[in-house]
Design a protein around this nucleic acid. Sequence first.
DNA 1: GGACGGACCGACCGATCGGTCGGGTGACAT
DNA 2: ATGTCACCCGACCGATCGGTCGGTCCGTCC
Lengths: 219, 219
Amino acid sequence: MGAGSSTVAVRAGEPSSRERILDAAEDLFARRGYAGVGLREVAEDVGLGKSSLFHHFPNKPELYAAVCARILERIDAGVARSLARSGSAAERFLGAIDDLVLALSRRPGDARILLRSLFEDDDLPGESAEQKRGEAFVKRIVSRVEAVLGEGMAAGGIRRASPRPLLLLVVGLVVFPAASGEFGEELIGGAVQAPQNLALIREETRRLLAQGLVIPIVG
Amino acid sequence: MGAGSSTVAVRAGEPSSRERILDAAEDLFARRGYAGVGLREVAEDVGLGKSSLFHHFPNKPELYAAVCARILERIDAGVARSLARSGSAAERFLGAIDDLVLALSRRPGDARILLRSLFEDDDLPGESAEQKRGEAFVKRIVSRVEAVLGEGMAAGGIRRASPRPLLLLVVGLVVFPAASGEFGEELIGGAVQAPQNLALIREETRRLLAQGLVIPIVG
DNA sequence: GGACGGACCGACCGATCGGTCGGGTGACAT
DNA sequence: ATGTCACCCGACCGATCGGTCGGTCCGTCC
């Protein structure tokens, strides 16, 4: 299929083979994890022979690292854009979280791979360049959010807290709902991405961060 | 090794082979996921031949399902115990969450497998009895927490909210920090289980649920 | 004593894994 | 015309996968 798409100059608008490999691999890794996906399956989804994958990526760990790095790059860019808006630190923080919830729910695969890459230790043994690139994006994202949190605490719009443990909680709070598959669907009735469900999740996330859950005792 | 430990009547206090297989499998599955663990490795950790595993479990999916079910059973029991304490619904809810954070941080493998089983869809293809047992525990846990939330909302100690989406958020909030491995360690300085870090996480979790993060505008 | 069955084992099976190899094809520069 | 290079392929490799099989050992029951 797609006859004549293999000229040296990539047809404008058509993704390159490398990009299509990343797309297919991302989709599969998101569903079944690193060890659960075979390169034959990736190649078949792309429409290439398995050996062609090795022309674009040296081996499986590097392919996975590239998938992760691409996702983290997207998320970092989105967070940067969200935080660049105007408003108080607290407003920018809440807005960025809301944007992130929205973005992850639109791309559940991103949420899942992100979640995996954050809580699986020894998926990848080596320390490749692509892997370091991904870790750098993680650090950038963390430092961005940490900065706005610190700003908000200094300004008084965000209550004083330990920023790093708090970040850990927020990551789970934001990433998991978008990543939860059948469990999320069964819990709330229907897909997380469905407009009305997504609206509820965004609303509850915002209110939880903004107001907590327990009603303070008045007087 | 372990000469003379294979009498029919299990030595009192010594776990049975089945239990030791579950222990080893839980440890490995927690670290590398379902597809990332080979049965040879499980058997070797236990100190048995690989074929002996099939004497206790019919196949790999059933072993995994049994591991999951055992974890979910533990968690359900803990949640039930926590919620049985006295106090207002809001207090019982916060107490149960705190207990759960504590329990999961003590057994990070539980947190990881729980997280995996909640957001990986097609890990297990079939519908075995053990798998249904696990799903039943999930439903019991959900209904327990949902009940106390509803009670709190009715009594006024917990603000009105959509219980199911809220539950989804809370699961991510509670489970992820305990499951986060190297990422969590790098983010906060040191292991999540370390007493001072654990105290911080418990404190921030409680305050986030109780008060939120943003300081309400007074006046 | 002899049959039985639970627990365990080594050897083996077909399938699939990640990865290699040699070669083919077409665009392009010389 | 020739060489080069990016891209792609089928065939193949050793290793490992989940799972089966026949058989051993030993305590229990009749």
